[in-house]
Design a protein around this nucleic acid. Sequence first.
DNA 1: TCAAATATAGTACATTTGTACTAATTATTT
DNA 2: AAATAATTAGTACAAATGTACTATATTTGA
Lengths: 224, 224
Amino acid sequence: MKIKTKDKILAVALAQFNEKGVEQVSIRTIAGAMGISAGNLTYHYKNTDIIIYALYLKLVEELGQSLEQLHSRSPDLQWMYEATRYNCGMMWKYRFLLIDFVAIARRVTTIRDHFRQLVVLRQWQIKAAIEEMIKAGYFEPEWEEGIYDKYILRMIILSDAWISDAQIHFDGQEEEIIPFYSELIISSIQPFLTLEGRKAYKEITDRDGLGPITGYPGNPLSSD
Amino acid sequence: MKIKTKDKILAVALAQFNEKGVEQVSIRTIAGAMGISAGNLTYHYKNTDIIIYALYLKLVEELGQSLEQLHSRSPDLQWMYEATRYNCGMMWKYRFLLIDFVAIARRVTTIRDHFRQLVVLRQWQIKAAIEEMIKAGYFEPEWEEGIYDKYILRMIILSDAWISDAQIHFDGQEEEIIPFYSELIISSIQPFLTLEGRKAYKEITDRDGLGPITGYPGNPLSSD
DNA sequence: TCAAATATAGTACATTTGTACTAATTATTT
DNA sequence: AAATAATTAGTACAAATGTACTATATTTGA
């Protein structure tokens, strides 16, 4: 019983944050949607900042769990594909955090510091995976200093930014969004693949019915 | 005299938006910084939304001017480089718009619709430039359907997202930010270049002293 | 059971924000 | 110079927000 209310608050808050954005949600809107008093809500969470922080911790925890699972396997293309897909889903679940991240980081500085470390971790991880796959013959060896470092940075930025893009360019059709953008992110490895890498990549994408981009609304590149 | 106040309001508002974020700025904070009354400010701009919209129009106009200039030349690598550099500077000047874009688009729906069209335009433009450069032998011809379309989309997302990334990972050092990210964006063409393209690219970056990434704070990839 | 801890509702208050208005001042125009 | 328009200051108000507090109600544990 204890835990139930606290968890429900987080769930309702998450839904409201995602739908309306951080600034449009207050203790009172959450309490109102739950049918409890605002005074009661402050008993559990003093203000919205604390709720945001709690949700951030949940995201980090869930991402961490996926990392553990994936860490047990040796990284290959399939691994990269699954990891991206999974992370995109997770981020979409907590999308308000990424959409308003700068504003949130300004309000809750702990999140900013923590996130910085997270990014560093991700960089190491991807770097290791790529090196592995160069050895395995899927990725071209680095033909000039620093190209993979830059690529990793671009990929990480893209991994956080696609949600904002989706929020602006799609209206509503949730089911299409995650497949679309996870493919877009994954496809950034294409120009680095060897011939063998391309073959392996094609196998994976064919299996999942991926191909040229479609469904980007109002898009001249979109083949519809 | 007439115009002066209106323009100064926009200037002060821009500075405050960039520094504190959209939600922390009100008619009163702007008026306070200017030393005029809030009542006076509402005479010129009824509320902050209208100020935001005015600033958005200014950004669009300034970007349009750069497009015109660049349009008179035939697109080559040098052109792409300069365009990126210029656009980055412009976006940094109006960075609050991009940082809180989703929140702003929710508040001022006109901006959202307008921005969607803008993105479509940019896609066409880049697509045309790339086709040109494939013909010129700088870019590899498309070895699989759709790779350039996806690349363009990734590049556009990155072009809007780097500012948020900078806001989180850099503290203060403004001078470094624009060179750093404009190079990061430009470098995304590297894996698509032919041998000849690589040579041309190297010439450009060498001239400007660009190379492997440095200066990304707390970065394992950063060579310091 | 019955005291203590936990949870809930309700109220009140200081701040802030957009908005609307009035009155005064300054520029412009005829 | 007089009249008109444009600009500015100041005030007031309703709505919303975080915060703090009190008073019940409910659960828990000894």
